[in-house]
Design a protein around this nucleic acid. Structure first.
Lengths: 341, 341
DNA sequence: TTGAAAGCGCTAACAC
DNA sequence: GTGTTAGCGCTTTCAA
């Protein structure tokens, strides 16, 4: 296969030096328009294409960003990555993708791999397993841009893009209360992730604000999945206080809740159900599922913008920004108790 | 920020040369175990981490693969990318992600970008717009590995990983016929993508094999979406021959079909519905939706494996493989006419 | 088994 | 406005 043409080839053919060629190709102002055109023409003629590896090595900038997410199988993350890539592409950045598969060890390795690849920054959302954060500290120590989104961790001194999850929990609960539900159950995860804890806090505060007593027996802490929703619901139905509404930690869990209720011939929305994430299917299952939209696209976009801003500064961590997006309540049939009574 | 340590630092501290250090770090056999251990120890001590950019430039291998998909917003592609990354990671390859956003121009630019990034290969699925394929020919011309999956194009002389879409169409139709449906409608796309045309061919052949006449009025060509499913169904319900089953070009279209039927108080599965893709939601909408599984994960995995195989050979295109996966029929309630009568 | 040295292709002072 | 010249950090012959 033909050796690829380099700026040396262009320089030789034109009888000029590589620095001039480099300048022409990179739109450096200190060059005559005539030479630039000449170079551009010759480059096209020789079918020249830059070797970014070489240019990265020399310049110390890779124009690449690393993204670490738990898994692209979760639609929220796929959406977020979609937006990040779309936004970054506009600024000629490439995206290296790494999935942690919800494993701490894998996540640590991801950071290592991306750092070795000399990315200019890392945008990450934590695995469910992650407790330690030393791997992320290393990113900061190297002066590279680090942005954590959605699944964050308080120990990481880096900019964050997240939903106001307290508000999300509050909003979901408040909506249920407004609809007349009183004994509200909550099936959440037992993982130590800020966002999940915040939602529970929002839940509890909303109850308190409404003067509704909180019953520990109405909170189930396990996993988030359809199965967990089913099991959690079965457990709640045994509890001394029967729930008249159940919040699912995510939409899949909510689907499980709905399935369990249906299996017991319990009417929805006589018993209300609401989830988090506003997955696409929420709008076309039966009954349609109320949910809290997590704004995946907006989140991805904000991450990208934050990175672009940081990467321009000499000290990216001079001012650590925090972007908190507002959750959006999407009301659907599964909580429409008033309308149907 | 501390300059990063290089193999020179290690060499200096140990009083040996960089070539020895390099050999130790890369498990080259021609080195004494003693020196290797010494180097490894010192590397750890100095918190050394390889600069892959430098090593790529020098070795001519980037250990990076580029993936071009229309958009991660489509779950099938997110799944495929998930599997590709997961598989490739095992072999220490990184993944550069590029979305064409269903735009030809963007796709062309993607190939260019990835080539400039010196990827060792490209795994791609075409945008709906793509007709020309010169940009992919360039990949081959440069001797880089190219693999096309799912949305393929006959002009590209590269290995392909795809579903047997003829069989997929046949299987869906055959299943409906087996269930006793006779006037089968099909809502598909008008785009010139091989896979969609193949499915229609499978559909027609299945009808023919069963001795059922084909009615052009039962085929609706438009878009694939919930809305398209609704509109298509309304159109089919007007047709001279009333359909007793409708195939949706994808699961979203099938959801639209179901919604339109429900709106007309038409019972499902008295009128059958089946889709393509076997999206996760298919199993928990009401009624649950029969579908043809596209094996996104398997497809991604096969792409990765094919790449790993190709990249080892001196001439990657010596033998152009074609991996055709079998579609899997997933029977659910929406076509369970027999069981319920 | 180890060392010396020439690159890989490009960038970026610095000099003219 | 253009040329000269060091690198960037690593790999890889070729010698020793």
């Amino acid at each position: 296969m033909n050796k690829k043409t380099t700026i040396y080839d262009i320089a030789r053919e034109l009888g000029i030096t590589v620095s001039t060629v480099s300048r022409a190709l990179n739109n450096v102002p200190t060059i005559s328009e005539a030479t630039r055109q000449l170079v551009l023409k010759k480059a096209k003629e020789l079918n020249y294409s830059v070797n970014k590896i070489a240019s990265s090595l020399s310049s110390g900038k890779s124009n690449t960003i690393g993204v670490i997410v738990p898994t692209m199988q979760i639609h929220f993350f796929a959406e977020a990555v979609h937006s990040i890539e779309k936004e970054l592409k506009k600024h000629r950045y490439s995206l290296l993708l790494y999935q942690s598969n919800e494993s701490y060890a894998d996540e640590v390795n991801g950071v290592k791999t991306l750092l070795e690849a000399q990315v200019d920054g890392i945008i990450a959302s934590l695995s469910l397993e992650t407790q330690q954060t030393a791997h992320f500290q290393e990113v900061i120590r190297q002066g590279k841009c680090l942005i954590i989104f959605d699944r964050t961790h308080q120990d990481i001194q880096a900019p964050v893009v997240k939903l106001d999850d307290f508000e999300a929990g509050y909003l979901a609960t408040r909506h249920l209360i407004d609809q007349g539900y009183r004994n509200i159950g909550f099936i959440t995860t037992n993982k130590e992730i800020t966002i999940f804890k915040d939602r529970v806090r929002g839940f509890e505060t909303a109850l308190q604000d409404a003067g509704i007593p909180r019953h520990e027996s109405l909170i189930v802490r396990g996993n988030l999945s359809i199965e967990a929703g089913i099991e959690g619901t079965e457990q709640l139905l045994q509890s001394p206080i029967k729930p008249d509404a159940i919040i699912g930690g995510d939409d899949f869990t909510a689907v499980g809740i709905m399935q369990a209720l249906k299996a017991q011939q319990i009417n929805i929305p006589a018993t209300g159900v609401i989830g988090f994430a506003n997955q696409r299917f929420s709008s076309f299952i039966t009954p349609t599922l109320s949910s809290i939209d997590q704004q995946a696209n907006k989140m991805g976009e904000e991450c990208a913008k934050l990175f672009l801003k940081m990467v321009k500064q000499k000290d990216p961590y001079a001012a650590i920004e925090q972007v908190v997006l507002n959750p959006i309540l999407v009301k659907r049939e599964s909580t429409a108790r008033n309308q149907q009574s």
